[in-house]
Every structure is written in structure tokens, then in C-alpha cells.
Design a protein around this nucleic acid. Sequence first.
RNA 1: GGCCCCGUAGUGUAGCGGUUAGCAUAAGAGACUCUGGAUCUCUUGGCGCCAGUUCGAAUCUGGCCGGGGCUGCCA
Length: 561
Amino acid sequence: MTNVEKISSDFIRIIINEDLKTNKYNGRVYTRFPPEPNGYLHIGHAKSICLNFGIAEEYNGKCNLRFDDTNPIKEGEEYVKSIIDDVRWLGFDWEDRLFFASDYFSKMYSYAVDLIKAGKAYVDDQNAYEISYNRGTVNKPGKNSPYRDRSVEENLELFESMKNDEFKDGEKVLRAKIDNSHPNMNMRDPVIYRILHAIHHRTKDKWCIYPMYDWAHGIEDSIEKITHSICTLEFENHRPLYDWFLKELNIYRPQQIEFARLNLTYTVMSKRMLLELVNNDIVNGWDDPRLPTIKGMKRRGFSPSSIRDFCRRIGIAKVNSNIPIEFLEYCVREDLNKTAPRFMGILNPLKITIENYSNDLIEYMDVINNPEDPNSGIRKVPFSKSIYIEQDDFMENPIKKFYRLSPGGEVRLVNAYFLKCNDVIKEDDIVKELICTIDHDTKGGNSPDGRKVKSTIHWVSLKNAINADVRLYSRLFTIENPSGKKGQDYKEFLNPNSLKILKNCKIEPAVSKLKKFDRFQFLRKGYFCIDPDTTDKNLVINQTVELRDRWLKIKKKGEPS
RNA sequence: GGCCCCGUAGUGUAGCGGUUAGCAUAAGAGACUCUGGAUCUCUUGGCGCCAGUUCGAAUCUGGCCGGGGCUGCCA
């Protein structure tokens, strides 16, 4: 533990450092990531995953992957699989430590029996409404249940009957006997077992009673000898209960620590809302690239390392915060800039005919795959008489500070020639084609006479271009905090233009060799990846994020505001 | 009217009684550039408020103000 001092310290690591110093857990650091398999993982879970697995790694400890599957009504195998997949994709390894709360159901049952024997739990016949009503409110103490003083024997018998399928759902519950006037609502005789005749995805019909979170979670942590049980802020008020159970049971007690969950601007992070977007076909499934789900982000083109970097940079604290989504975008660009090969693709094509170029000639230009990565090598890109450039890269009447192509103006075609525009062909006042010439002496991109050109644009040879659908994504919502407007449904703020599909984009041939999910940069346009919808006949490309665009700012400044 | 947690540049964080209050991002200016990308340089900008303790407070104490959470047989 010599390098402990060097680890940057958020408040959790400070606690761990202190525990190490006082030898609280004999030098062990043991965490867990405990998802409930009732939904797909999102970037908020990634924060927790990076925290728990990251801490284990830094302190030479271990981190378990444990499914908190105590509610068969909402949970299922589909979610288990996707979660396992996602945690692995993010780059973490739980080795042989994949656990399920349901593995501990027998143990939890016998602990409940112990609690009854100790006179600390009882079977309550009140229905859900009565229990809730008698619990009181935050400023009104609750009333004891008329069944609270049953004998230990009767409780034992009834609890066993509950387990043995002798009652209907909701007919009885097991409650801890604590204090119905406790200022902390969680301590007012919380329910610890309920009757649920549901098929559990792992234990099938073995049980008809299921433990509640508060009862289950501490026991799971205790069984696994977790040292630091890290959870989100809303469980702060549950900590006294967590501690109470383990103390009454007289078993190993980990320390629960709460941190603030992640919020991102222009999106929603609640499982309920994500589920609703998916089920109502507002988005196209859990892996829709507009979603902040791990599957969506993977499909959008985010790399695992960019997500990990993001989680590291945002830090850990107890204040609720709302991270600008631009920060996430910064992190992908940062990663992809160094790792993504560059290709040329024309999203909105404008045809150019080069008058002074041979009709049938095709030249192959040497192009560096990634100028940021010296090991990335070079490739050959075909050039010919007819090429496409981006519509945006031409202005018939250029505004000031527009350095790209305009009539009479000259630009560089990246890695090819200087190009000059001589004539504009229009139909109905719309620019259809440009007639241009190249300077043959500038092959490769430099002029022997030292002549400079203010702009360099990208291009694709018409003859060699392959077509693709390019899907452009922007924020799913139109306001920063769609779920935070009181009295208004978050769906009112959906962005109708969050998905834009461009057909017949013109792409350089090398892109056809890429595999699904491969990430790359379209030169000057942004980062993209191959969508899994791609077939032999149809190339589908997703935009991850645009490049930083200074031109946008310059243009805006030029406009009267 | 109860209980718990939290307030450091626009945003996210570091600081643990003595610092020119650090870092990142955003914003602004400039340099460089075969991506208006990347890179580099500079600038602007912060301790919620009021007392107290102390030679000395962002840091300790108290009060106030502000924000969040808690009244499922969800997790």
C-alpha cells in the first residue's frame, strides 16, 4: 500500500485511506457493483462501475459483480445478459466473482428466522394501505400494528406458512420491530419480506416470498465480506437500517458510503423514463444511439476508454450536479483524435468537374491514416476528373472570413491538388455543379512557387465513391433538464430533429473494408462508426460527434445578432 | 412544524489552520497548421451570508440563507 498517498483523493478514497491506516478491515479493500437486472445500464451506472472497480484496482482489492435480483416482477434474464456484456465492454473484470442475491435467499430466510426468534420481527396481517397509513408522515409519528405483539412461536409459524405458499400475495408481510415513531421513516417497522407469486428468472417457483432491498442488501454485502458498500445518495437514510440489521444479526458489517449519482444535460437517466422511450418506440430500442445507455453509446461510437476517462474526470462528491453533455463529447473527441483513422466522406455532395484533367485517368494519392498516430500508416485514395466536395465548402457569394471555395478562388484538395473554381452551373438558382481547374504542379498539396492557399478541403472521386446512409444525431431533448420541470412531462421536450438521415453520401472506397462498430473520423466532419444495420448492399454510418467547429463561431460573430 | 445530506470560478472538482486558493472544461485573445481539427501561449472568472475561536479560517464552532433526499409489500 505504498502508493496509496499518490491516489487522488475524493471523499471516498479519503475514508478508505483512513480505514487502511486504522486497519479497520485488516488492510482489505473489497467493493461490489450491484445492479438490479431490470433495465439496461447507462452512463450513470458507468460512473458507479468505474468507481467500484477502479477503487478495487487501485488498492489491490477486489470488486464483485452482483445482481440484486430480489424483485422477480421487474427482473429478467435479458437484463442480466446485457449488463454482463456492458460491464465487460467497459473493460472491467470480476474474474470468478459473479454473484446473485438470489443465491443467498436461503441464508436470508434463516437470518429472518433468527430475527423473529430474537423478538425483533413479526408477521403483520395489515394490508399495504393500512401499513402505509399507520406509518404516519414525516411530521406525524406512526401507530403500532395490532399484530405487532404476536408471540415468537406464532410469528415463526406464520412466517413458515408464508414461505410454504399458504397465503395470497399481499396477505401478510414480515416486518422488523424497530420504532414506529422514529424520525427516520425507514426505521418505522420496515417490511422485510413480502409474498410474491412470481417466477423468478433464476430460482423459478422455489420461493413465493422475497426479501426487500433493505433486508437483502446488507446481508449480501456481509456474506461477500465487502468492506466499502458504495451506493447513491438516496440511500443515506437507509444506512441506519443497514447498520441495524447487521448489528441485530451480529454478523460482519461493511461500511455503506453514499455518493451523488450522475446527471447529464439534455438527456434523462431514470430507468423508468428510458424504458418508456423504448417501449413507446420514441427511440429505436435500448441501443438507440441517442440514448445514454451503454449499448446506445457503443452504437453511437463511444469508446470504452472515453467513457472511463469521462467518469474519472467528473470526480466523486456528495453534491448533486448536472454535467454538461459537451463534457462527454469533449472526452470522446480527446480519445478518438488520437486513435481514430481518418477517411474522407462527403455528406452533402456537390459535383465538381475538373476541366484540365484527363478523362480516364485515376491517380492514387498517398494519404496518412492518422496524423496523430505515426504508426497508423498510409493508404491510397483514388482521384479523378469528377469529384465530390461538401456543399458547405462552396459559397457563390462568400461572406467575409470564408476561406473555402468560391468563384475565382483557390483551395487545396487535401493530399491532392490546388483547385480553382471557374464556373458555376445552376438550375433554378440552385448550384448543381462546379467547373474547376487544378494546378498540375501542386500534386501532393504544395505549390513549387510557394503560393499559399487559405483553406484545405476534402473530396471523394465520383467514379470510386461508395454510397452510404449517414445518421446524424443531436440531443434527444431541447432543454437541459427535461425531467426537472415541475408539472410537465419530460416527453414534452423531445427534440423532433434528434435523428437526421442522409442518403447517398459519397464515401471513399476504403471505408467499405471496415467492420461493424469500427470508429473513424471523416476528415473535417467528425467522428463516426459503422452501424450494425450495415449489410453487403447498404453501408450505414453513425455520427458520434462533430469535430469542434471554430468556423461556426466565426460565422455567428459575423452575423448581426 | 420531523430527520438526514450538501454549498469553492459558468460547469465539474482539489484543498484537511499559514497556498499568489490548484486542476480540468467552458468563455475571450493570439501563435501554428495540408482537417476553420489537433497542438501551444496568454486572459477573464470562485471560497453562500453573519458572528465566534485563533497571531492567522475556504478549512474549526454557532446561527442564518440556499439546494437535495426521505412518508413502496421498488431498488
